[in-house]
Amino acid sequence: MHELSIVMSIVAIAQQEVQKAQASIVDEIEMDIGCLSTIEMDAFEMAWKQGIKQTILQHAAKKINRLNGKATCSDCGNIFAIQQVYEACPNCGSHFIHITQGKELRVKSLLLS
């Protein structure tokens, strides 16, 4: 499961920020995880529990924003919601679409003290 290595990357980012800010602990972490990112939320939760043990995130409250999929059609310019990366444009049927939202996997903010 790649979720564990994702969690480890998140820990690394948090650690860098804590050092930069000369803080000592992360009280809260806010993340954007798009619905089209290949993150399984169940696996992520399990990996989270395991991965944050004895790290700077150990006691952090976790806030996750799930962002819905959105795309723009490259052929007709239509902007529409998608559930799967392979959906066609509902207006013209084109498969040449550009995903504008939903692939996010990002540490948005940290509350440090």
Binding site: I6, S9, I10, I13, S24, S109, L110, L112, S113
Partner: peptide, 19 residues
């Protein structure tokens, strides 16, 4: 150690950034 001086850092960093 807690002085309860909290600070919000807007990180906005892609988790796969390093990779």
């Amino acid at each position: 150690d807690h002085q309860h001086r909290q600070k919000i850092v807007e990180v906005e960093k892609d988790v796969l950034h390093e990779n």
